[in-house]
């Protein structure tokens, strides 16, 4: 935001950081001049053409000049104060909110006794603070206001866009369960690819955990969606809705299984452990006929005979 305030002399005297500011400032002055000339000429000629149908052409020319010059001056003024207007526009939500709150407070204090005033204030502040749902909503929307300014800081401070220094349009923001989602319309000079390499820096500037960029429209590469994440939901336990579809008291139904009895290593004969890796018998370890605890390896009839014949 500081970038928009003109600092011509600082820009001229110091090094690389302020070069852009000077350039931006110069372009602003030039733009204002161009706007003045263009508007004055176009409006003046139009006015003169219209006036020529009523008066003598020379009088019409003078009338055209009289109309065109003030219009050009208005355009010049608009372009010159544009940085200030832009600043006001950026903070319009906060300005309006502050005006609303202050007006409300003054009106309330002026029309009600002190006790009632305090009571109303306590209710207006206390109820949202006490009810968790409202509190979370208020905080989430407050973050939306904050994050739009933080994104603008990102673009202004380290994502140098184009020669005229125009910043992307930061559009609507709304809370998501994990943070905020902001829609941004890029200006010439930037692309989603440029921003992808700087996501970590954007996350830092937004005081967030991570930032993700997605295209918001299939047919417009300039229209992006920033997903700013502050909380992690993927660590949560996710239940399946299938559980609600069923009746858990359904009768148990399972086909009988022949459970093998050879559940320990000594119970299985050495030659039967032929897990073939790549088709060759992998009976690498000729197990001793008696194991360490002295138990005889039982000739397990429950070992899968059919499998063994297939494996070798």
């Amino acid at each position: 935001m500081s970038k928009s305030s003109p600092r011509r002399f600082a820009g001229k005297s110091t090094g690389t950081v302020t070069v852009i500011e000077a350039r931006v400032h110069r372009s602003s002055a030039r733009n204002a001049r161009v706007a003045f000339i263009l508007t004055a000429v176009v409006v003046g000629v139009l006015a003169a053409v219209v006036a020529a149908s009523y008066w003598h052409p020379i009088v019409a020319l003078i009338v055209g000049a009289l109309v065109g010059v003030p219009c050009g001056a208005a355009a010049w003024l608009l372009v010159r104060i544009w940085p200030v207007l832009r600043l006001l526009w950026w903070w319009i939500t906060e300005v309006l909110l502050a005006v609303l709150l202050l007006t409300g407070w003054v009106q309330l204090a002026g029309h009600t006794p002190m006790v009632v005033t305090l009571l109303v204030v306590a209710l207006v502040v206390g109820v949202p603070a006490a009810v968790p749902v409202i509190r979370r909503q208020v905080i989430a929307w407050a973050w939306c206001l904050v994050v739009r300014h933080r994104l603008r800081v990102c673009f202004a401070q380290f994502i140098i866009a184009n020669q005229s220094g125009s910043l992307p349009l930061i559009l609507w923001a709304r809370p998501t369960p994990v943070g905020e989602r902001v829609w941004v319309y890029l200006r010439p000079g930037l692309s989603a690819k440029d921003l992808e390499g700087r996501l970590d820096k954007i996350a830092v500037t937004c005081h967030a955990s991570t930032v993700l960029i997605e295209r918001a429209a299939e047919n417009n590469a300039a229209y992006l969606r920033f997903d700013i994440k502050r909380r992690e939901v993927l660590t949560a336990h996710v239940g399946s809705p299938l559980v609600d579809q069923i009746d858990p008291t359904a009768p148990v139904s399972a086909s009988p299984l022949t459970v093998p009895t050879a559940l320990d290593l000594p119970d299985v004969d050495a030659p039967t452990i032929t897990l073939p890796a790549q088709g060759k018998p992998a009976g690498k370890k000729p197990a001793p006929t008696t194991s360490a605890n002295g138990s005889k390896p039982a000739a397990s009839s429950s070992a899968p005979e059919d499998d063994v014949s297939d494996w070798i």
Binding site: L234, T235, P241, V243, D247, P248
Partner: peptide
């Protein structure tokens, strides 16, 4: 584009409950 997801979890009891119910129906 790959999306990060968290797969829903079915416990062993859930799985067997669903299987029993499905077998029943």
């Amino acid at each position: 584009v790959p999306r990060r997801i968290k797969a829903a979890y079915l416990s062993d009891t859930d799985i067997y409950n669903i299987a029993d119910y499905a077998a029943w129906t």
